[in-house]
Every structure is written in C-alpha cells, then in structure tokens.
C-alpha cells in the first residue's frame, strides 16, 4: 500500500473532494441543501452507504466476475440504501419527508459507484473503509457549506437559529433551484482557486465518470484510434 491510511482519509476531504473537485453526486448536492440540517442528514446517510458498500465490495472483489461487476455493485449499494431508508423512516421521519425521493436516489449517486469501481474493487477492506469514510466526510462538508450559505441567505437562519433575520430580509431565490446552481458554481470556483491547479475543472469529463471503464462510447473511441 503506497499511501498511508491517513492520506486515504484526507484526500477525499480536500484534494479529491468528490463534490467540489470531481463534481460527482451533483443532483443530491443541489436538491437537499436548502437547509443545513438536511445537508447533514443526507451526508450521513450517503457516508453510511459508502462505507458499507466499499467494505463489502472490497471483501468480495475476488468472487464477483469482472463482466457483471457493475450490476453486482449496484445491487450491493441498493441493499444498503434500503437499510438506510428503513432506519431514517423509523427514527427520523422529519428528515425522511425533507429528503423525499433523494433518499432512495442515493443508489445512483455517482460517488458511491465511482468509489466502488475505482477504489474498493482494487484495494483491501481497511483502506476501502477509510476511503469511504474520507469521501463521505468530504461529501458532507461540501453539502454543509452549501446548506449553510443557502439557508443563511435564503431564510436568514442557520440550523433553524435566526442569525440574519434582524438585519435584512431573506433572499428567497437562494432556496429556489436557481440559487442552488448559483451557490454551487461559486463554491466550485472557490475550491478550484484554493486547489493546487489554481482553477476550477473545465467541464465534467469522462475520466471522473464511474462507468468510464465499461462505457461503449469510450470503447468505440479507442477502436477508432486503433483503426487509424
């Protein structure tokens, strides 16, 4: 193992932050960050699924045939998502109604399949768990930043506590979809500026897509290259 466990953990939080640097899992990021509490709930649920699926997938990496690995990964992930759905429904009904359809949609969150494909299926169990934990914390941190900014500007509160409401009227558009896109854009720009490269990612590329290895488009591109 070239990298220490500590590096595996911290890379997901800053250097390879799944949301702000790799731009994965955008749907959930934009949709649930209207309040800081929802951001934490979504982050925790996703982290749980990420850690569990990473652990199981890395433990089973030698049993799963390479050809059917994507369906197998998706089934494992869907199993843990179902567990999370049941836990949230039973113990946090308010969170369940706030997250709505985005709770089951954790199953198609590219971060989880991406880590399964790029990390867990190639590494041992313990580093995979640490990697999942780091990526999950990075995801939660990005969501929390979005949630705090949008709640503060859109409702004048943070975690439901009034902060700005005595000084200014809330700017409701920050709670609406356009505000989500706007805050996300600015955050990506800031994260890009602070990163080593010094700029935000150009666009979403195939390189970060979890289905890159099995994508027909890529296979065809390579075929065209060889033909020339």
């Amino acid at each position: 193992m070239a990298k220490s466990l500590k590096q595996e953990f911290t890379k997901g939080i800053i250097k390879e932050n799944p949301v702000l640097r790799l731009v994965l899992g955008t749907c959930a990021t934009l949709a649930v960050t209207t309040a800081a509490v929802n951001a934490i709930g979504m982050g925790a649920a996703t982290t749980f699924v990420l850690v569990c699926s990473n652990a199981v997938i890395s433990a089973m990496k030698n049993i799963i045939p390479d050809k059917v690995r994507i369906p197998a990964f998706i089934t494992i992930i869907a199993g843990f998502v179902t567990i999370v759905q049941m836990i949230v429904k039973a113990f946090f009904p308010a969170l369940d109604s706030a997250l709505g359809v985005f709770l089951p949609l954790i199953v198609v969150n590219c971060i989880i399949l991406g880590r399964a494909e790029m990390f867990a299926s190639r590494n041992r169990v313990v580093p995979s768990i640490v990697d999942g934990l780091g990526m999950g914390v990075g995801f939660t941190a990005a969501l929390l930043a979005m949630g705090i900014i949008r709640e503060l500007l859109g409702a004048g509160t943070v975690f439901g506590l009034p902060i700005l409401s005595n000084f200014m009227d809330p700017i409701i558009i920050f709670l609406l979809p356009p505000g989500g896109f706007f805050v996300f854009g600015i955050l990506i720009a800031v994260a890009g500026k602070l990163s080593e490269e010094g700029h935000a990612p150009e666009a979403m590329s195939c390189a970060t897509c979890p289905l890159n290895a099995s994508c027909t488009k890529r296979a065809e591109k390579e075929k065209a290259k060889e033909g020339r």
Binding site: P178, G185, I186
Partner: peptide, 17 residues
C-alpha cells in the same frame, strides 16, 4: 476565476430563473 464549470453553473442558474 469563473472559467470552466462555475460559469456553466451560473448560466444554468439563469436558465432556471
């Protein structure tokens, strides 16, 4: 500062408006 993805997201925000 906004080149690349950020300006794309801000454009998306305006379309959403």
């Amino acid at each position: 500062f906004l080149k690349g993805l950020p300006i794309t997201l801000i454009a998306a925000s305006l379309v959403a408006v």
